[in-house]
Design a binder for these strands. Structure first.
Length: 439
DNA sequence: CTGGGGATGGGGCCC
DNA sequence: GGGGCCCCATCCCCA
């Protein structure tokens, strides 16, 4: 009875919308006018929630909204979804619908789109594995109960492509700055949007990073734990076994390639220019996975790495990976180069001469003579170099290019070879192959 | 349990 | 557009 009642109410609202009865809200999309009910939009979209709640006349006159960031056809699909709970996706419009849903902060719709894409990828891979599989269907229909946006932190996984609930994505959500205001509902969106990213095709790449076969993508949370773990173990000691299942690798490659294609198309689609203020137009690029906006496309590309888990800059000393070269450089200098001129133990300032470099695993730091004598040399090894030429030559790898079977080149210049001559140029960018890199 | 400090990661912005 | 610097927030370890 409850379901029938809800369905009936929604049908009535949809009829009213089509007949423009009691519509108190106008939405202009690229010149095309959509009439709607504020209550319905408020209940369905975090964006409209913010817009309607911040409007000075939010409780009186008609509210107008203008969009130039998606097409009227896309908004038609979204309006039909809002007023019917039915979503008819096609492989051609799913990206734009997802982008618009992201913009409008409609969590469940984003989830459906991601599941649709994911199912498309899965089916595609299975087709590659077995040519007997039926072809990918062109349309996929989902249904949804209305009004769940912003109320359910874990939107239901409906439809045939429902994916398992997110469990591994442990990213710190507080860093997702919301540029659309700080209402509770928006915060809910920010948090849940990240969680639902687990099922997204892009973050499937992150999930792939759990696989030691694909170290390019790593989960931020897992990365930290991993690095802590490697501190206890020997960081270079474990190598994953090579899998010889060529079919599986081919399927993975196909899937990754497919996802990469999708990933490559995202910036051109979501890199839209919005106008948030008529008097002071602001050019912004919006992230498709959160509410964050940036001024430059390059910054959006950099930002996307925090969603994809892509870490193209591995440290060859400890295999820890970084999203930026500067982070890798900073890590290398502080962890492996002993650049800081303070005693690790007593914190007293030392000089290049008085601060002896001590090696502990892959870590290097300086200690004053007194602290070295106090600690002794039982569990640490004295660096063979003097203080003036103590930087090891480290080859920093950059992913993406192939090169033979290059392994980690963690070299301490205890024999003063040619690499030690230029201590200031100890960061050498080199192409590496890390296809069998450890976790 | 708590505060300090190191390490890390992300955003803004300049060159 | 990329590199790099600065700043800040957060996490985690340790005293």
């Amino acid at each position: 009875i409850t379901v029938a009642h809800q369905s009936n109410v929604l049908k009535q609202l949809n009829q009213q919308r089509r007949q423009e009865l009691f519509c108190d809200c106008s939405v202009l999309v690229e010149g095309q006018l959509f009439r709607a009910h504020r209550n319905v939009l408020f209940a369905s979209s975090g964006y409209f929630r913010m817009l309607l709640s911040q409007a000075p006349d939010g409780l009186s006159d008609t509210v107008n909204a203008t969009f130039d960031v998606f097409s009227p056809e896309t908004f038609t699909v979204i309006m039909d979804f809002i007023y019917s709970g039915q979503l008819d996706l096609t492989s051609t419009d799913v990206i734009e619908v997802m982008s618009a849903a992201s913009y409008l902060q409609m969590n469940s719709l984003i989830t459906y789109c991601k599941n649709f894409i994911k199912s498309s990828l899965d089916i595609s891979v299975k087709e590659e594995e077995s040519e007997h599989c039926p072809s990918l269907s062109e349309t996929c229909s989902f249904t949804s109960a209305p009004g769940e946006e912003g109320t359910d932190p874990h939107p239901q996984q409906l439809g045939p492509a429902a994916s398992p609930p997110p469990a591994l994505w442990t990213r710190d959500t507080s860093r997702n700055q919301c540029s659309f205001g700080g209402k509770d509902s928006d915060q809910d969106f920010s948090s849940s949007a990240i969680k639902t990213d687990v099922s997204s095709p892009v973050n499937d790449l992150s999930a792939e990073a759990e696989d030691p076969q694909d170290p390019l993508y790593t989960l931020p949370g897992a990365e930290r734990k991993r690095s802590r773990g490697s501190k206890r173990k020997s960081s270079n000691s474990n190598r994953p076994n090579q899998h010889n299942d060529l079919n599986l690798q081919e399927a993975r490659a196909q899937k990754a390639e497919k996802a990469d294609e999708l990933y490559a198309t995202l910036p051109s689609i979501v890199g839209v220019i919005g106008q948030f203020n008529k008097d002071h137009p602001i050019m912004r690029f919006k992230c498709p996975f959160c509410t964050h906006t940036v001024k430059r496309k390059a910054d959006l590309k950099r930002h996307l790495r925090c969603h994809t888990g892509e870490r193209p800059y591995p440290c060859q000393a400890c295999n820890k990976r970084f999203t930026r070269l500067e982070h890798l450089r900073s890590h290398f200098e502080t962890i492996h180069q002993a650049r800081k001129l303070v005693c690790r133990k007593c914190k007293c300032p030392v000089t290049e001469e008085t601060g002896h470099v001590v090696c502990e695993g892959t870590r290097r730091y300086r200690m004053c003579t007194a602290c070295i004598q106090e600690v002794g040399c039982d569990n640490i090894s004295m660096d063979p170099l003097d203080g003036t030429n103590d930087e090891p030559a480290l080859l920093l790898g950059v992913d993406g290019e192939e090169e033979g079977d290059t392994k980690r080149s963690w070299i301490v210049n205890d024999d003063d070879d040619d690499l030690a001559e230029d201590s200031g140029a100890d960061l050498i960018i080199q192409q590496v192959d890390d296809s069998d890199e450890e976790l």
